[in-house]
Amino acid sequence: MKHCSIELAGETLWLLADKAMYWPLGKMLIVADIHFGKATAFRSLGVPVPHGTTTQNLQALDALLADYPCDEIVFLGDFLHAKAAHAPATLAAMHAWRARHPALRLTLVRGNHDLHAGDPPASLGIVMVDEPHRAGPFALCHHPDLEADGYVLAGHVHPVYHLRAARETLRLPCFLLGPSRAILPSFGAFTGGYAIRPLPDEAVFVTADSAIFRVPG
């Protein structure tokens, strides 16, 4: 199953196996913590990390746009990882991607990394907003613990869940859904994760091998 339909704040949302959320009524794709330029930032510090993560992230966005009718992408913070993300090669790839989607609305809810990295170039045509950003019944945020009027959709945590079976353990990206907020997994190809422990009133949906399913409990 590539997506799972849920009801939040009276609206139907789809949790996508590709670590994003889709709001069919708003034709909106919601992405958290893509961290463009993180690998570049590490390499600038002399850390040998893989190349090509920017291209991988952009290809992942293209795949979602091909599968889901979309008028807007909202990025829930940490679009750029650091000032090094303004490297010419990184920006060139992003501009080439933007040129393929000129009519697509892009909105960035500033996160903590964005404050340090600085806003992306205006030539990318991204609308910059501060949290909380209202869209229908939702408060689109970066930080999940922000007090907001509306059901909070946020990132920041990079949640993962340890799924155990006998002596085997899998560490999988997950969505964490509670009564007043949902935390999305990190979308970026080169990001870590924080192991969460859900509360009794929270639901966990893990993603693995292009599938998504709810963890019993």
Results as ranks from 00 to 15, higher is better:
Met1Ile: 10
Ser5Thr: 12
Leu13Asn: 07
Trp14Lys: 13
Leu15Val: 05
Leu15Gln: 10
Leu15Cys: 04
Ala17Tyr: 07
Asp18Trp: 07
Lys19Val: 00
Pro24Gln: 10
Leu25Thr: 12
Leu29Cys: 11
Ile30His: 04
Ile30Trp: 06
Ile34Trp: 00
Phe36Ser: 03
Gly37Tyr: 00
Gly37Met: 03
Lys38Glu: 04
Phe42Met: 14
Leu45Met: 15
Leu45Val: 05
Val47Tyr: 11
Thr55Cys: 07
Leu61Tyr: 02
Asp62Leu: 03
Ala63Gln: 14
Leu65Val: 06
Asp67Thr: 12
Asp67Met: 08
Pro69Asn: 07
Pro69Gln: 02
Asp71Lys: 12
Asp71Tyr: 09
Asp71Trp: 06
Ile73Val: 15
Gly77Glu: 09
Phe79Thr: 09
Ala82Ile: 05
Ala82Leu: 04
Ala82Cys: 12
His86Lys: 13
Pro88Met: 10
Ala89Asp: 15
Thr90Ser: 05
Ala92Leu: 10
Ala92Asp: 13
Ala93Glu: 15
His95Leu: 12
Arg98Tyr: 03
Ala99Lys: 07
Arg100Cys: 09
Arg100Pro: 01
His101Tyr: 05
Leu104Ile: 02
Arg105Asp: 12
Arg105Gln: 14
Thr107Lys: 01
Leu108Ile: 05
Val109Gly: 08
Val109Trp: 01
Arg110Tyr: 01
Asn112Trp: 04
Asp114Phe: 08
Ala117Ile: 09
Asp119Glu: 14
Gly125Met: 02
Val127Asn: 12
Val127Ser: 15
Val127Asp: 14
Met128Arg: 14
Asp130Arg: 08
Glu131Arg: 03
Arg134Gln: 13
Ala135Ser: 13
Ala139Cys: 05
His142Glu: 10
His143Trp: 04
His143Lys: 03
Pro144Leu: 02
Asp145Ser: 11
Ala148Arg: 00
Asp149Asn: 13
Gly150Trp: 05
Val152Asp: 00
Ala154Met: 03
Ala154Trp: 01
His156Phe: 02
His158Arg: 01
Pro159Phe: 06
Pro159Asp: 13
Val160Thr: 13
Val160Glu: 13
Tyr161Lys: 09
Arg167Gln: 14
Arg171Glu: 09
Pro173Gly: 09
Pro179Tyr: 01
Arg181Gln: 11
Leu184Thr: 09
Ser186Asn: 01
Gly192Tyr: 02
Tyr194Ile: 07
Ala195Asp: 06
Pro198Trp: 07
Glu202Arg: 08
Ala203Pro: 00
Val204Asn: 03
Ser210Trp: 05
Phe213Val: 06
Arg214Gln: 15
Val215Asn: 02
Pro216Ser: 14
Gly217Glu: 09
